[in-house]
Design a protein around this nucleic acid. Structure first.
Length: 289
DNA sequence: AACACCCCCTGTCGGC
DNA sequence: TGCCGACAGGGGGTGT
């Protein structure tokens, strides 16, 4: 499920139960998910207070009062859920999917937070908070697309001279961090830009922004903000931490709509799907040029 | 630098 | 019904 809006939705769902509370206990269902858990993982979490829960791109960052930060990435299929603990309860005898419940946190105040990840492409790590920006997974990340200074000029500067197609450039987390396959397709459609256009087209000869760069900056911001507002997108029955379903998937204009009519008013085109760098691209060849 | 391709792991879905 | 391949929201690595 998780691109930026879904991770942000998870963050907002977890924060009320976790921020300010101590982690009373941690249980692991196995020794690794995508990677092994770091040494003494449970000990370094147990008894620590969570001072803040932040997001960087698609990463969740739980700042602990120990001076360390818990880094979590949901991969393709990771999700968190919150449940009320009963007295003495730790395991989840009623979990619908105990096989993929890999990490269970018991939180001060009586909540149980469970990380479930069938494909195990997600991971968790711990790092010193004052050295977080040197963590190998965070160090190379590009700019936040919802930051106040993310605009046409920024896009032009990032894309000037690039011959790579817009789709690939937007998926590259080293340039802009947080977009994934769905929201790239959606943003390009909103901006009326072909996914195959060279990214460098958005910069003029002096490296300044074209009108298209402005349209794309606006489209990215709008689609992300609207998706967050909707609680993210729910695909394959993924849920928010509180069990609610996001509903932005009903607002997709192109993603997973191969063969359907383009939703742009006045456009008579149909949505096409094809592969770009081994990933499905959905777009309308009629209005995206 | 940038591409095309491979891998990680598991579940689901469509076609036969 | 059963089997099998294709495919899935992420990301890193390699070789050309």
């Amino acid at each position: 499920m998780p691109e930026l809006p879904e991770v942000e939705t998870v963050r907002r769902g977890l924060a009320p139960a976790m921020v300010g509370a101590r982690i009373e206990a941690v249980e692991l269902g196995r020794a690794d998910i995508r990677f092994p858990f770091p040494p003494r993982f449970r000990e370094r979490l147990t008894g620590k207070r969570i001072e803040a829960l932040d997001r960087r791109a698609k990463y969740l960052l739980a700042r602990l009062d120990s001076g360390e930060t818990l880094i979590a990435h949901l991969g393709m299929s990771g999700s968190f859920r919150i449940e009320e603990a009963f007295v003495g309860e730790f395991h989840h005898p009623r979990s619908k999917d105990p096989k993929h419940d890999h990490v269970v946190f018991r939180i001060e105040g009586g909540k149980i937070v469970t990380y479930n990840d069938p494909r195990r492409f997600g991971f968790m790590d711990l790092a010193a908070t004052d050295a977080l920006d040197r963590h190998p997974r965070l160090a190379g990340l590009g700019c936040e697309p919802l930051a106040p200074d993310f605009d046409a000029a920024r896009i032009a500067a990032l894309f000037a001279g690039l011959r790579a197609p817009l789709k690939a450039a937007l998926l590259d987390q080293k340039r802009i961090a947080g977009l994934g396959n769905i929201y790239v397709c959606e943003a390009l459609h909103r901006a009326k830009l072909s996914p195959f256009r060279p990214a460098g087209d958005l910069a003029n000869a002096r490296g300044g922004p074209t009108r298209s760069a402005g349209a794309l900056a606006k489209a990215i911001r709008a689609v992300l903000e609207q998706a967050i507002e909707a609680g993210g997108s729910t695909l394959r029955d993924h849920r928010q931490a509180d069990g609610a379903l996001g509903y932005f998937q009903h607002s997709f204009d192109v993603y997973d709509r191969e063969g359907a009519a383009c939703r742009r008013p006045g456009c008579r085109g149909a949505i096409v799907r094809n592969a770009q760098s081994a990933r499905s691209t959905f777009y309308c060849p009629t209005c995206q040029v």
